[in-house]
Design a binder for these strands. Structure first.
Lengths: 233, 233
DNA sequence: AAGTGGTCTAGACCACGGC
DNA sequence: CCGTGGTCTAGACCACTTC
């Protein structure tokens, strides 16, 4: 017989969600302040605060000092994606992982990258292209550019043994990064590697990482057809 | 001269991040417990707790009762995407928004949907297809199926005046949902609407929402070429 | 059994930002 | 100015999980 000793912030979240969904708290409306809610729910203000803060983080509420807390009119839904290591992603689906290095070169970066990174034009980057397989089938092409003036050990790493994806995660810590999801038609080379016809729609992820002001890596992934990213709202 | 009166959880986060990045706390290692860290940082345990909890949420730490807190070896990066309302997305880019309803029908759902939703086979759904324009250019095709036995007012809504996307956000609250990102080649109809050649790679978002056990909507979005979703890590 | 994180409380002070 | 949310503290109890 669980007579709950106290109200948890989870309880408050559930109840607040209900009030929003049933429009007891209509869109755009100001809701009572934390102190009043604490009284109403019979818990402390900190508990209410945590509940409402989390609802605000997920986009359902808008909170401002002095102005109070409002129900957001057009909730901008937030979805959290996990970006796993490719090997783990393949293995967690129960497939056998294999990896092949297609290219390793130290060259000047392509024009768009040099411009985005504002590099001196005599700087060379490490360029790796590799292919990840799931149960022997091509799964994704990985094309990465590594700023060796920051990640110096990359020049000595053996990328035929360790795949670039995993090596970078472990050896190129970053302070922040950008990630872009898009779609593109397979070009000649890509269609060859992935064994699809030229022009097939591929899912594309591009990830750029930085250590403070210094660019670290730029990685572009072209996935074989059928690939999906899935998450919950 | 701001002599900080007390250490904030943000300070603790920054310092913990630094220790992880510099490998003062190496991957896989157990870090000191909350009480010790509170002592070390000169703050309360709750403050340390909040800092570490947030780092765990973003995937850098793994916390378990009794077992302690460890630095995650292969951090699975988490990216948070905002899924805005299409009209807002277009307008925030400075483009003029326009919308056209292409189809409105009350019909039996297609086989895969009926199976996924476990519907009685005599149930009809509201089927809407519409097209959103940015500065007169086709931007995205929206294809939605609405469970009118739950969202009853949908049958009376005027979808020539209000676009389905926005109407649903405001009138079909859900408890949870799934969202999938993928890529597909434009079929005959899609290429016509988006004014691209058949087979062009399109970015696809599919969103299914539920109210507890009851399915509410299934929406599929096919974006015109060039569309990308961008976020930070 | 015991150590660790998870959370609640009451009270306090502060920072922001409408008014 | 002053109401509101944002956060900190100290102390407490609890839940989980490993030992």
């Amino acid at each position: 017989m669980s007579l709950k000793s106290s109200i948890s912030f989870q309880d408050v979240k559930v109840e607040a969600r209900r009030k929003i969904a049933t429009r007891q708290w209509p869109p755009g409306d100001l809701i009572p302040n934390e102190e009043d809610l604490a009284l109403e729910f019979g818990c402390s203000r900190v508990t209410v605060n945590r509940a409402l803060r989390e609802l605000a983080e997920s986009g359902l509420l808008d909170r401002r000092r002095k102005a109070g807390t409002r129900v957001v009119v057009n909730p901008i839904r937030k979805a959290t994606l996990s970006i796993p290591i490719t090997r783990h992603e393949i293995e967690s689906r129960g497939h056998k992982y294999r990896y092949a290095l297609l290219l390793r070169a130290v060259t000047a970066p392509p024009e768009p990258l040099a411009r985005a990174w504002k590099l001196r034009d005599d700087i060379n980057l490490l360029h790796l292209t590799s292919l990840h397989f799931a149960d022997g089938q091509p799964f994704v092409i990985e094309d990465s550019w590594i700023n060796t003036s920051v990640v110096k050990t990359a020049l000595n790493a053996d990328f035929t043994a360790t795949n670039a994806n995993e090596w970078l995660v472990q050896n190129a810590p970053f302070s922040h990064g950008d990630i872009t999801f898009s779609s593109a038609c397979a070009d000649q080379a890509q269609s060859g590697h992935l064994k699809v016809t030229c022009g097939t729609a591929l899912f594309v992820i591009e990830r750029v990482t930085w250590d403070q002001k210094k660019p670290i890596t730029s990685v572009r992934l072209h996935y074989a057809p059928g690939y999906q990213i899935r998450t919950t709202l």
